[in-house]
Computed example of a mutant assay.
Amino acid sequence: MTAVVRPGVSVSKLCEDGDRLLRAGDLWRATSLYMSAFRTHAASTVSHMRKLESGLDGVISTLESWLDSHGENPPR
């Protein structure tokens, strides 16, 4: 999956969509949206992620698994 940021999509919208997917248990897609938000504005995304009450461990695990795969199919 490639995370594409459409013109006019804000960091807060990307994070909200990521939160919705995270609550639904879709770690892969949620993490992809958080990465897109991070690419758009890192400080705002980190601030949002620090406020997450649950799910952050899953996002971190997903990121680690992408790193461990040595580039095999991680989102862009």
Rank of each mutant, 00 (worst) to 15 (best):
T40C: 14
R23N: 08
G25Q: 05
R29E: 14
S12D: 08
L67P: 11
S10E: 07
I60T: 12
L63A: 06
D57A: 14
D17E: 12
L33Y: 09
Y34Q: 01
A24W: 01
V9K: 06
A3C: 13
R23K: 11
A24P: 04
S12R: 04
L56E: 02
D26Y: 14
H70K: 15
L14E: 03
V59Q: 01
R50G: 05
V5Y: 06
G25W: 08
A37Q: 00
V4P: 11
L27E: 07
R39H: 10
A24Q: 12
S32A: 13
T2L: 03
P7C: 09
D57P: 08
P7S: 12
V11Y: 00
H48G: 03
V46E: 05
L63T: 04
S44D: 10
R20Q: 09
P7W: 07
S36A: 15
L14T: 00
T2K: 05
W28P: 07
W28N: 14
A42G: 02
R29A: 08
L52F: 00
S36W: 03
V9T: 10
T2W: 00
F38K: 15
P74W: 00
S47R: 02
A30I: 09
H70I: 15
H41S: 10
S65R: 14
S12I: 07
A42W: 02
V46N: 02
H48I: 06
V5Q: 09
R23D: 08
D17M: 05
S47K: 05
P75S: 06
H70Y: 15
S36V: 10
R6K: 12
V5W: 06
Y34N: 01
D68S: 13
T40A: 14
G71K: 02
E72L: 15
E72Y: 15
G8H: 10
L52N: 02
D17L: 09
M49D: 01
H41K: 08
D19G: 04
S69H: 10
S44I: 04
G71L: 06
R39W: 12
A3N: 09
K13G: 01
G71S: 07
R20Y: 11
N73S: 15
L52G: 01
